Simulated scan of single mutants.
Amino acid sequence: MTALAVEPTKVRRPRVSLQLLRITLVLHTTLVIAQPIAAGYFLAGNVDAMTNIHSPIGGSLWMVAFIQTIVAACYTFAGRGRIWPTVASALLIVAELTQIVYGYAQNFAVHIPLGTAIVTAVIWMTVWSFRSTARLSRREAKR
């Protein structure tokens, strides 16, 4: 009897694309955390915090989300990672553009809860990206 050696198929996992996604998410997290801090400085009486910190960062966050979406798409398609980070990143573009509109309109009933949701989502995605499950391919994640 001859035993046939069956080699397991090599599973392609996201590596470089995951590292790029992590870098982008850390940058995004840093910027979104700076937003409520800058708003707090404004509310504490530093009127320059709104024009010098909060507005410029808020106006550029959607661009970071756009870059994050491109990187997440590379993670999803080239790295064979999960699909949801790309979808969530695209939704963050919409949420952050909406946030700009309501911020300039001074509609704080929408601006503050939406900002809280954005901060929560970006932090959650960043934490997830450093977990071991982020390294799994789509095929492995389905098991």
Score class of each variant (00 low, 15 high):
M1W: 12
A3C: 15
L4V: 08
A5V: 09
V6C: 13
P8I: 08
T9N: 08
K10E: 06
R12T: 15
R13A: 06
P14G: 05
Q19V: 15
Q19F: 14
L21V: 09
H28T: 15
T29R: 04
T29G: 06
L31M: 08
V32E: 03
A34P: 05
Q35Y: 06
I37E: 07
A39F: 06
Y41G: 11
F42W: 08
F42E: 14
L43T: 12
L43A: 08
N46L: 10
V47C: 11
A49R: 15
T51N: 15
I53N: 09
H54E: 02
S55F: 13
G59L: 02
S60C: 10
W62E: 06
M63P: 08
T69Q: 10
I70R: 03
A73H: 10
C74A: 14
Y75V: 03
Y75L: 00
R80Q: 08
G81N: 05
G81H: 03
R82M: 11
P85K: 02
V87W: 02
V87T: 03
V87H: 02
A88I: 12
A88S: 07
L91Y: 00
L92H: 00
L92D: 01
I93L: 00
V94W: 01
V94R: 00
L97G: 00
T98P: 05
I100L: 04
V101E: 05
A105L: 15
Q106S: 09
N107S: 13
N107R: 07
V110E: 09
P113V: 01
P113L: 01
P113Q: 01
L114M: 01
L114F: 00
G115P: 03
A117S: 04
A121H: 12
A121E: 05
A121Q: 09
W124V: 07
M125T: 02
M125S: 07
T126W: 04
T126M: 07
T126P: 05
W128R: 12
F130L: 00
R131S: 13
A134D: 03
L136S: 13
R138K: 11
E140P: 03
E140D: 04
R143M: 15
